[in-house]
Simulated assay, not measured.
Amino acid sequence: MTTQIDVTFDFRDDTPAGKDPDLLSPTLREYHQILWSKQLSSGHTFTLTKSESVYLLHESRLGRFPLSSDAITTWLKGRAAKILKEIPSESLPPDLGYTIGSAIIFPGNRVDGAATINGARGFHPRIADRFDLTLECIRRHYRGDASPLSAALQRYADFFALFSSFHEYVEFFLLDDLWDSRASRIRFFHHFDDFSTPAVPKTPGDLIDYLQANIEFIEARNRRIARSLM
C-alpha cells in the first residue's frame, strides 16, 4: 500500500470510461483505506481492510462495518439541466474533477432491504445528493432531532456511534471546512431555511454561486487532507 496521497489525482483517470470511480477506481479505494484507518477518540483503531465481497471493511470488537465510497459534491447536472443550459460555459467554475477532497465513506450494506445513506440522500428531493444538507442531517442525528434523512441515518446508528459526537465525526473525516464553529452551523452551499428552501438552485446566479461553493470546499478539504499527512 502506498503511503503517499496525491490530492490532485482525478479518480476518473484510473476508472474505465463511463464507469463510476466510487466503485472501480483502485486509487480511490486505497486512499480511503489510508486516510480513515486511524484512531477513534475511544482509543480503538478504525482499521479498514479490502475485501472481495465489500468495498472496504472494518471488523473488530466494535462491530462489523462494510463501507462504500461516495462523492460528496454534486454539480446537479441532471436536476439543474435547464438552468445549466442558460449559463455560458465561460461563466461556470472550472470542473476540478473527482479528487479525494470530494469523497467519503458511508456504510455500504442494506438494512432490511431499505436504501443506504448514499441512496437515500441521492433520491430525497429535499437533499438532492447535496453533502452540505446531508451533513446537517447527520448533525441533527447526533442531537436526536428529526431531518429528511432520519430513518436512513438511524438504520446505521451503530456506525455513527463509533464517533462520540458530531464534532468528532467532522474532525475524523476532515470536514471542518464545512462547519462554522463560531456560529455552530453548517456552511451551506446554497440558501438554507430548515429544509424549506429548494435543494436545487432555481436561477443561473444561484447555481453559479452553489457550484463555486462546492469548488471552494473541495479545494479546502484537499489542503486539509494534505496537511493531515505531514
Score class of each variant (00 low, 15 high):
173 F>W: 10
193 D>E: 13
47 T>A: 14
158 D>A: 15
18 G>K: 06
64 R>D: 10
67 L>M: 11
219 E>T: 15
35 L>A: 04
37 S>T: 10
169 Y>W: 11
138 I>A: 01
195 F>W: 07
206 D>C: 13
84 L>K: 10
17 A>Y: 06
120 A>Q: 07
8 T>P: 05
77 K>L: 09
36 W>K: 06
211 L>W: 02
183 A>P: 06
152 A>M: 04
169 Y>C: 05
99 T>C: 07
12 R>L: 06
204 P>H: 01
44 H>T: 01
138 I>M: 02
110 R>L: 09
34 I>S: 00
9 F>V: 06
222 N>T: 06
136 E>M: 14
216 E>Q: 13
110 R>T: 08
209 D>Y: 03
100 I>Q: 02
230 M>W: 13
14 D>N: 10
118 N>E: 15
200 V>S: 02
146 A>Q: 14
226 A>N: 09
155 R>Q: 15
57 L>H: 00
48 L>N: 08
44 H>W: 03
1 M>Q: 08
117 I>T: 03
194 D>W: 08
189 F>L: 06
73 T>C: 10
22 D>L: 03
183 A>M: 11
59 E>T: 15
130 R>Y: 08
17 A>W: 11
33 Q>P: 00
25 S>N: 05
192 F>I: 00
98 Y>T: 10
143 R>Q: 15
158 D>K: 13
145 D>H: 11
121 R>A: 10
24 L>M: 07
73 T>D: 13
44 H>D: 13
228 S>F: 08
137 C>M: 07
161 A>D: 11
45 T>G: 01
153 L>T: 02
6 D>I: 05
222 N>L: 01
77 K>N: 14
40 L>T: 08
72 I>T: 09
37 S>R: 04
22 D>C: 15
221 R>W: 03
59 E>Y: 11
47 T>K: 10
75 W>E: 11
14 D>T: 07
31 Y>T: 08
70 D>L: 07
48 L>M: 11
157 A>H: 13
12 R>Q: 10
182 R>N: 14
60 S>V: 09
98 Y>A: 06
98 Y>W: 15
67 L>K: 00
16 P>G: 00
64 R>S: 12
97 G>P: 07
52 E>L: 12
211 L>Q: 01
230 M>E: 14
136 E>L: 12
191 H>G: 08
24 L>T: 05
88 P>T: 02
15 T>R: 07
210 Y>N: 04
171 E>N: 14
139 R>P: 01
37 S>M: 03
46 F>M: 07
93 P>Q: 09
164 S>K: 14
186 I>C: 00
30 E>P: 05
176 D>K: 13
48 L>K: 02
53 S>L: 11
221 R>T: 04
172 F>D: 05
68 S>N: 14
142 Y>I: 04
201 P>W: 08
190 H>A: 12
135 L>M: 08
225 I>N: 04
219 E>V: 15
102 S>D: 10
190 H>V: 04
222 N>H: 04
56 L>Q: 04
141 H>R: 10
32 H>W: 12
